[in-house]
Amino acid sequence: MADHSRRQEGLQRVQIGLTGLAGVVLLVGLANIVIDKARVDDIASAPPAVPTIDVNAAVAATTPKEPLAELGVQPAPEMAPIVPDLQPDPKIRKPMDQEPTPQTP
């Protein structure tokens, strides 16, 4: 009896595997048909229009030199404020990045 159930289980696994393989082959075939149809449609469409103006010159004329400065996000280099070098305060004797240590009286 155990041999019969093992054999039936093995047969069921083979059937499931073959069904899955057939499904994958079907999906790949359908994808191939869709891609071929898209290529045929692209070839049949009209070619793109040829521009009558020089695209590079038009783009260069409309491209801002400082896009962030034109938006007001960053000042232009000629308008940048001049910041003097910062010197540490000579009155500071302790590091400021550490917790203060308790002082004993």
Rank of each mutant, 00 (worst) to 15 (best):
P100M: 14
R13Y: 04
P100A: 11
D41P: 03
P64E: 04
P67R: 01
E9T: 11
M79C: 13
V34W: 10
A31V: 13
D36F: 14
A60Y: 03
K91M: 12
D42G: 14
I82F: 06
E99F: 09
R13V: 02
A60I: 01
A22C: 10
G23A: 06
G17S: 11
N56T: 12
A38I: 13
Q98N: 07
E9L: 12
R6N: 14
P90N: 02
A2I: 12
P84S: 03
E66L: 11
M96L: 15
E9R: 15
A60D: 05
P51C: 01
P90H: 05
L11K: 10
A58F: 01
M96Q: 14
P102T: 10
G17N: 06
K91H: 13
Q98W: 08
A69T: 03
K37H: 15
L26H: 03
G10K: 06
Q98R: 15
R7I: 13
P64D: 02
T104V: 15
P84Y: 01
M79K: 15
D54T: 02
P95M: 09
Q8P: 01
V40Q: 06
D36N: 14
P64L: 05
A61S: 04
L26W: 07
T19K: 08
V83N: 04
V28C: 13
Q74F: 11
T104G: 12
V83L: 08
A57Q: 10
G17A: 13
P81T: 01
R39Q: 13
P95T: 08
A38K: 07
A46I: 05
V83Y: 11
V50T: 07
A61M: 05
E78H: 01
I53L: 05
H4Y: 15
A76P: 02
L18M: 07
Q15A: 11
G10I: 05
A49M: 02
P75A: 06
S5V: 12
L86W: 01
T62V: 10
G72T: 02
A57M: 07
P77T: 04
L18Q: 08
N56P: 06
G20K: 05
D54S: 03
A44H: 13
M1S: 14
M1A: 15
I33H: 10
E99L: 13
